[in-house]
Design a protein around this nucleic acid. Structure first.
Length: 820
DNA sequence: ATATACACGGATCCCCTATTTCC
DNA sequence: GGAAATAGGGGATCCGTGTA
């Protein structure tokens, strides 16, 4: 039997004591194929360098005789081979110790505690990863496979009959082939319930959306007919219907939004209550959930995707949306939003409101479906780059992705993989003192004309590569021919012989450059190339964080601290050169520098940049971020110091770039934000403050005469932990308490909305005593919004021009008094 | 459990001192 | 007149949210 094959989902099973991998995928005709395979199972025992030849042989024989009896299952070491390998860049001799079952490796490792064996490695990767490493059948790549067709076969306990697939093949040969077109079958789903707590309420409806498939299943509001709505008799039947439709559609991907934490566990809990088997898996198995705080729901053969998780790692840092709610994310990515429906308990929904509810439910699945389609190229890109199954890649954070990438690229360096840190190691690492981070230059407040901004491309990444900073290149003793730098008054040294970790990163940066160039030069927009370029970009950026992350296999405090130190040194040197070159630096943060052109032309400045680059070490490179017509820096709220991480720029085309100001902060009311934004824009456009002052006066007047709609005064703050854990009872905590009392559900993100009201007769002057929920009756507190929202947002901007905004606020008050 | 440090600023917390209240 | 209650100032801390 020979066929094409694209693996999508990976799982494993035991048969007669041996591990087998099971890959579910498609052929180029769209047939669903199940492929069974296995590989050598082994761990590495690294030998002490002082061990004698003779002793090695003896030890090998001893290990070969190891027998295990685990919970009544008898097994043994199959064979032992001696190999020349590298571990953390050092040449080592290591035994490759073979076993029958991956699960036994741990127990075998425990028996290898002899003093001649220095380290035991490679038994904590997981069988799926191990198999991908061994057999190189990488998710979402195309293969031509050959093997035995299993048809009503007894092999593997009749697995071909258990799985609902078109073909089941025991793999014998495989080779990677050219990319073929693959359009995944997608089914998006969403549920609506009365209670937000998992399983506490009833599921009212479930919507499902696939290609040419739209359905809402419900047991509420029977009797009437609605488009796309199918009525069933009760909740139990609703769940059964859901299972039936998933099975009928037989998707490759079942996609939800926050479905790991809500929809799937909810359905599971309700099905348990009704004692219904939730046979969603291709082998009729039920979804399983990983333990731990963050749930993940897995369905055999169908990849369950929680899009929220992928968005969080892959996009959130570059997104405009203030929250990752389905509504905002859909708006940003596909220009569509949720249907309007005000959440109510089902008992309070009028007959004529149900149709809206059904539409709302269906539309959520439509949005989820649309988002998945939009993100599919990136999901493919990530999966192929990290070489891990889609299920994992779509959920993993960037540190895990970095690690996957390293693990799957060790072979070139003949490296044995490092182990995961133990709990003790993790707590030790966590206790380490924080090292000094980025350098931020205090700006000189003011409004400036004609500026340029330079920044380092992949700053920290290029530092790691240029100075060879990693766990394996850190030298124990000072050495002359090495890179050295001081971290917290201690000198550290790194070898100049390039380590495999910096080399892998160098490759990432190079590939990123290559793919970026490729997709920019491609005639029509090539989403796949763009996605791959993006995956490498994110990897390069996450690399530095990974080295400093306590859970990392290749953690290195010294390398991380040295990276920050070298970066500080580099940027300070560049600032000096810029100032010596006749420019004037205004501000700098981490890897970017803004400076005044001081009458120099743009082409002169570009030439200057070229020269700067000639003298930078290694692969470090400065880029032009842009030329700007004007720029604004202000003081901190407290004093005369220039405020860091806050500035606004306008370019020649009038495009404004605002960083750090209240304008971009979601915990300020809309009025303060839009007012500040407008004022900044007016100042940048006109180069003076008159127009913006007029505008400010007008807003203040409107606020005082209560002309501002309440929605512009709503303050949004995220509740980040359970109410009881707050030591400091701030306004948003009070608002959350009120919501709890009034049984208003707090959304999944925990965004709390409130406004500050006039509360005559209030005893204290605490803001929290004036908190009211948006729906609560009351008048907004003029004093508060003037002094705590508008004034702080504009005061320091006007201070640049020597204007006291406080007088603007108060002075206006007298005038309005005069008007009456 | 799941990348890092730096930074701002509101609001509360908490301690101290001064003032007011009460007997 | 002296003790207790209250008010207010100011630094420390908590908290959320940004920049890079």
């Amino acid at each position: 039997m020979k066929t094409s094959f694209i693996p999508i989902d990976y799982d494993y099973f035991d048969w007669q004591g041996k591990n087998y991998i099971i890959m579910i995928g498609r052929d180029d005709k769209g047939k669903r194929i199940c492929v069974i395979d296995t590989c050598d199972i082994y761990l590495w025992a690294i030998l002490n360098s002082k061990i004698k030849e003779l002793k090695i042989k003896e030890l090998q024989e001893k290990i070969e005789k190891i027998k295990l009896d685990i919970k009544g299952r008898k097994t043994r070491v199959e064979k032992v081979e001696l190999h020349d390998k590298n571990f953390l860049g050092e040449k080592v001799k290591a035994f490759k110790v073979y076993a029958t079952n991956y699960k036994d490796l741990h127990d075998i490792a425990d028996k290898l505690g002899m003093k001649e064996i220095e380290k035991r490695r490679g038994y904590d990767l997981g069988f799926v990863t191990h198999n991908i490493l061994e057999k190189k059948i990488i998710p979402l790549n195309w293969y031509e496979i050959e093997g035995k067709l299993l048809n009503n076969s007894e092999d593997f306990g009749g697995i071909d009959m258990a799985y609902d697939v078109d073909l089941c093949i025991k793999l014998e040969k495989s080779k990677q082939i050219e990319e073929k077109n693959f359009k995944p079958k997608i089914l998006a789903y969403d549920i609506e319930c009365d209670e937000f707590k998992i399983g506490e309420g009833e599921i009212l409806m479930i919507s499902l959306v696939g290609e040419n498939f739209k359905k809402v299943i419900t047991w509420k509001e029977q009797g009437k007919k609605y488009p796309n709505v199918e009525m069933v008799k009760d909740e139990a039947e609703l769940i059964e219907k859901f299972v039936e439709y998933v099975r009928k559609n037989s998707p490759d991907f079942l996609v939800g939004y926050f479905s790991d934490g809500f929809d799937l566990p909810y359905i599971k809990a309700r099905s348990e209550k009704h004692q219904i088997k939730l046979s969603l898996g291709l082998d009729d198995s039920q979804p399983t959930f990983s333990r731990g705080i963050m749930l993940t729901g897995k369905i055999k053969g169908i990849v369950h995707i929680d899009l929220l998780k992928f968005i969080r790692t892959a996009y959130s840092q570059y997104m405009q949306s203030e929250t990752l709610s389905l509504n905002e994310v859909a708006k940003e990515f596909i220009g569509d939003e949720k249907k309007d429906f005000k959440f109510k308990h089902s008992s309070k929904i009028n007959e004529d409101e149900w149709e809206k509810y059904f539409e709302y439910n269906l539309h959520d699945s439509i949005l989820t479906y649309g988002l998945f389609e939009k993100m599919w190229p990136d999901i493919v890109g990530f999966t192929k780059v990290m070489q891990e199954p889609v299920f994992d890649v779509s959920r993993n954070g960037m540190s895990k992705n970095v690690e996957s990438y390293i693990i799957h690229n060790l072979e070139k360096y003949n490296e044995i993989p490092e182990k995961r840190p133990t709990h003790e190691e993790i707590s030790e690492r966590k206790q380490k003192e924080k090292y000094e981070g980025a350098f931020v230059l205090e700006p000189i407040p003011g409004l400036y004309e004609d500026l340029a901004m330079f920044d380092f491309a992949s700053s920290y990444g290029s530092v790691v590569v240029s100075y060879n900073l990693s766990k394996s290149t850190l030298l124990e003793k000072p050495s002359k021919d090495s890179y050295s730098i001081e971290i917290s008054s201690k000198k550290v040294y790194f070898s100049k012989k390039i380590g495999f970790v910096p080399e892998i990163l160098k490759e990432i940066i190079n590939k990123r450059k290559l793919f970026k160039k490729e997709f920019k030069e491609s005639e029509k927009e090539d989403v796949i190339k763009r996605a791959r370029s993006n995956a490498y970009k994110l990897l390069a950026n996450a690399y530095y964080g990974y080295q400093g992350f306590f859970g990392a296999r290749y953690y290195s405090y010294e390398a991380a601290a040295a990276t920050a130190a070298f970066a500080r040194k580099s940027i300070k040197e560049v600032i000096e050169k810029i100032n010596k070159g006749g420019y004037k630096t205004i501000y700098s943060d981490t890897d970017s520098i803004s400076f005044l052109l001081n009458g120099k032309t743009e082409s002169e400045t570009l030439k200057f940049l070229e020269n700067l680059n000639k003298n930078l070490p290694g692969i470090m490179e400065l880029e032009l971020e842009g030329f700007f017509k004007r720029g604004l820096w202000i003081t901190t709220r407290a004093g005369t110091a220039g405020a860091k991480k806050k500035y606004a720029l306008i370019d020649k085309k009038g495009k404004v770039k605002i960083r750090g100001f209240e304008t971009v902060r979601r915990d300020w009311c809309k009025l303060a934000r839009t007012t500040q934004n407008k004022i900044i824009r007016l100042i940048l456009e006109h180069g003076s403050e008159e127009k913006s002052m007029e505008y400010a006066k007008e807003i203040i007047k409107k606020l005082k005469s209560r002309e501002i709609p309440k929605e512009d005064l709503i303050i949004r703050t995220q509740l980040k932990k359970p109410i009881s854990e707050y030591k400091s009872i701030s306004p948003h905590v009070i608002a959350a308490k009120k919501m709890q009392e009034q049984k208003i559900p707090i959304d999944q993100i925990g965004l709390i909305e409130y406004y500050i009201a006039e509360t005559p007769g209030a005893k204290t002057k605490l803001i929290r005593d004036k908190v009211k929920l948006p729906d609560e009756k009351g008048e907004y507190n003029i004093e508060y919004y003037l002094n705590n929202q508008i004034l702080p947002a504009i005061e320091n901007i006007f201070q640049v021009f020597g204007i006291n905004a406080k007088e603007l606020v108060d002075g206006k008050k007298q005038m309005t008094l005069g008007e009456f």
